[in-house]
Simulated scan of single mutants.
Amino acid sequence: MSHIQVDGLSAEIDGTPILDGIDFNIPRGQFVGLVGPNGSGKSTLLRAIYRVFKPWAGRVVIDDEDVWRLAAKEAALKTAVVAQERMGEFDFSVAELVLMGRTPHKGLFDSDNAEDHAIVDRCLERVHMTEMRERSFLSLSGGEKQRVLLARALAQQARFLVLDEPTNHLDIRHQLDLLRQVRGLGVTALAALHDLNLAARYCDRIVMISQGSIVADGTPDEVLTNERIARVYGVGARRIPDPDGVPQIAFYPLDEALTSEVVA
């Protein structure tokens, strides 16, 4: 398992600041949720962490190594990504796409072997997609594609897993199943999530960002207060009882009469 440190990360696009001095760390084995409203900088932050968007200041350190100083293959051995991506016009079978997760473990002329195929089979089984292994990836539903992309990341066998809105397109059952799987992997993980209730249930810690800066970092109980949600998201929020003791939140428009009931 890996330890991740983000130090002073700042980024801009076309001269517009997107991230401003982001600092946080993820201890080994912890599952951290990254939350914030649309446009807060979540995806830019993740892309800076997994080397798609280079920040103009700051560092991302995994196991004492700056990821932007690593070769691409070295970085891929450390970090696997489930991104909001499209495969374009290139079509692959489900099994072929998951097999791509083995690429960082290969030399230039190495062919796929029995161990690679066994790993693919195990990863497809973990995401309940074994029966789809010969299907065209482009023929799948959005939720099925997301599960296959998770299987590809698992096949990579990296120690740090980054997920950008992994529950998009999934029905409720598969949202719960996917996050439960991530939590049970035993790897260090960072996931950008829209659903605050899912983040509260499955994440060890939540980092909340707004307008490119961290506004809270702590346990779900510490971060998800009614007052903070109202301030950051612009909606009313009320914590409701949950038999498991997990923070669960009901939301309502701030312009309703219930606004006066918003408390920290």
Rank of each mutant, 00 (worst) to 15 (best):
E256D: 13
C123I: 09
L140V: 03
L124Y: 09
L149Q: 01
D7E: 15
H117D: 13
A118T: 11
I240H: 06
A153H: 05
I4L: 15
D244F: 13
A257W: 11
G212M: 01
E125N: 11
P253R: 09
G88I: 01
R122W: 07
Q146W: 00
A199V: 08
Y202R: 08
S111I: 03
L185F: 02
L9T: 07
A75F: 13
P241I: 12
D14G: 09
S2H: 08
A200E: 09
L9G: 08
V232A: 05
E85P: 00
T103V: 08
L190E: 11
V162H: 01
I249C: 07
N226W: 10
L161C: 01
I209P: 04
D242L: 12
L179A: 00
A76E: 09
L178W: 05
S40P: 04
H117I: 14
P166Q: 09
A95K: 14
T44H: 03
P247D: 08
V35T: 11
A191F: 00
T225C: 06
P253A: 13
V246L: 10
N38E: 08
A230P: 00
I119D: 03
F31D: 09
K54V: 08
F137Q: 11
R201G: 06
T16W: 08
I62R: 02
V215D: 12
R159Q: 13
P27T: 10
V262F: 07
W68Q: 04
S139T: 14
I4E: 06
A155W: 05
Q84F: 05
V67Y: 10
G33R: 05
I22E: 03
D112L: 10
Q157A: 11
E227I: 08
M129E: 02
Q175N: 03
Q30M: 11
E125Q: 12
E125V: 03
P243Q: 12
R231G: 04
A192R: 01
G107C: 06
R173Q: 08
N113V: 07
R152L: 00
L70A: 10
T259C: 12
L99C: 10
I214H: 01
K145D: 00
G101D: 02
S111E: 13
P243Y: 10
W68D: 01
G142F: 01
N113K: 15
D110R: 11
V32K: 05
Q157T: 13
G21D: 15
L149C: 04
R102F: 05
A155V: 08
T259K: 14
A155Y: 05
I13M: 10
A191N: 10
Y202A: 06
A230T: 03
D66I: 02
I206Y: 06
G41K: 11
L254K: 02
G21W: 04
R59E: 06
G245K: 07
A71S: 13
L198Q: 14
V81N: 02
C123T: 11
H117Y: 15
E144V: 07
G234F: 09
L179G: 00
G107Y: 03
Q156W: 10
I240D: 02
D195H: 10
T44D: 01
L176P: 01
A80G: 04
Q30A: 13
